[in-house]
Amino acid sequence: MESEEEFKMPLLGDEAPDFEAQTSQGKLRLSDFKGSWLVMFSHPGDFTPVCTTEFMAFAELAGEFKKRNCELLGLSVDSAPSHIAWVRNIEEKTGVKIPFPIIADGNKEVAKKYGMIHPGQSATETIRATFIIDADGILRLILYYPLTTGRNMQEILRCIDALQTADKHHVATPANWKKGEKVIVPFPLDQESAEARLKEGYECIDWYLCKKELKKE
């Protein structure tokens, strides 16, 4: 029972569990990010190859995340000095500066709160978990990747675009949608609306699948 509680994962739509943690940029609380979107992501370990490529990829797109009012926050069970040394090493060897803080979660307090330890993968390292948290602190999207598979940062950006577009325009986004493409009009919930839907000027395959362009911003 205790271990079930230990690895309880927060669910989409939940308020993201708050914490205070030591990071490579000082002590931070999750609530410090309120007002901004946040991509919080864990990695298995500093000075490891896949994680290094991921950090470089996140850093290279940091400006794109900023444009979306989105901050980045890394996490692993390594210490703050290890994070600092790794970040400095990445910059020295590749010229890529890591601009975002990294949580030093040695006691796994945050990792346990967010279900970042998957014992089937590793009992000691955090897997590649990604949490997108909105400006109100609500958990909006979770991605889990195994230790061997690096994440696709463009997909994470695409998810933020999709969530922000859905919020702003009250629409949904289809498979493989990218910003600027047509969006899905929410399907009608009664027969009268369903019959009217086909006359509303949308691009429809049928009453339940209609798309529209959004006005250019």
């Binding site: 940029q25 000082g26 002590k27 609380r29 609530s31 990010f33 309120k34 007002g35 901004s36 901050e71």
Partner: peptide, 21 residues
């Protein structure tokens, strides 16, 4: 906090954590 973030060009989270200290 928001005005300090704007005036200092620092992200909100850095302003909040700095203010605490």
């Amino acid at each position: 906090v928001e005005e300090i973030a704007k005036g200092s060009s620092l992200p909100l989270f850095r302003v909040r954590s700095s203010i605490r200290e």
